[in-house]
């Protein structure tokens, strides 16, 4: 609701600020809103909230605004923001923390990003190593974007850049990796969060 003014007394979730600070290890009140993080962000043009606005919203404890934002999913983790922050805040770490928090609460506002990651991780789970064509196929099925990157296929295939067969970790290694995933998912379920 953009029209209603924010009640700065009641509209804030102070425990959210503490949680973000604890999990990221960053002190968000150190941010003085210079905007350097936004200025250098390669993904800024895809954001609904600029990085400094995310930081501001965290400072104010606006949990819904932050965790429902698209930006936290579009972040590329290049950490340009952290590198150039004049206040030594690891902004990329804050972004990743917010992404983890949103996922645990089952708020995924850019499903394609999530679908891509899951497709990638599915192949790792299956074979122990990532499998590029497998990732693509799974992603296309999940996202129903069946023409994704088809323009690249002829070049990549003719150069032998993409193998049709996955590389499976030998000697039971793949199974060991699958066990890591299984335990991870079981634990997430036990803890009542989205894996």
């Amino acid at each position: 609701m953009q029209d209603t003014p924010l009640n700065i007394v009641q509209g804030r979730d102070l425990s959210f600020i503490r949680e973000v600070e604890a999990e990221s290890g960053q002190k968000v009140s150190n941010c003085y809103q210079c905007g350097n993080c936004s200025a250098g962000c390669p993904a800024a043009f895809t954001y609904d909230l600029q990085t400094n606005q995310i930081m501001r919203a965290v400072q104010l404890g606006l949990k819904d605004k932050v965790l429902n934002s698209k930006s936290i999913w579009m972040c590329l983790s290049c950490s340009t923001c952290s590198l150039r922050c004049p206040n030594n805040i690891d902004v990329a770490n804050v972004m990743e923390t917010l992404r983890h928090m949103a996922r645990r609460e089952n708020r995924v506002n850019v499903p394609v990003m999530n679908k891509f990651w899951l497709s990638f991780l599915n192949t790792v789970r299956a074979f122990g190593r990532s499998f590029e064509i497998g990732t693509m196929v799974l992603y296309m099925l999940r996202s129903l974007r069946l023409t994704t990157d088809v323009d690249l296929a002829p070049g990549a295939l003719s150069k032998g850049k993409l193998g049709f067969k996955p590389h499976v970790v030998p000697d039971g290694g793949a199974k060991a990796v699958a066990r890591i995933f299984r335990r991870y998912e079981e634990r997430a379920r036990r803890e009542g969060v989205r894996p």
Partner: peptide
């Protein structure tokens, strides 16, 4: 020069 306009909320 890559900056941002924090009042506008956009890269500049």
């Amino acid at each position: 020069v890559c900056g941002s306009d924090t009042l506008l909320g956009q890269r500049v």
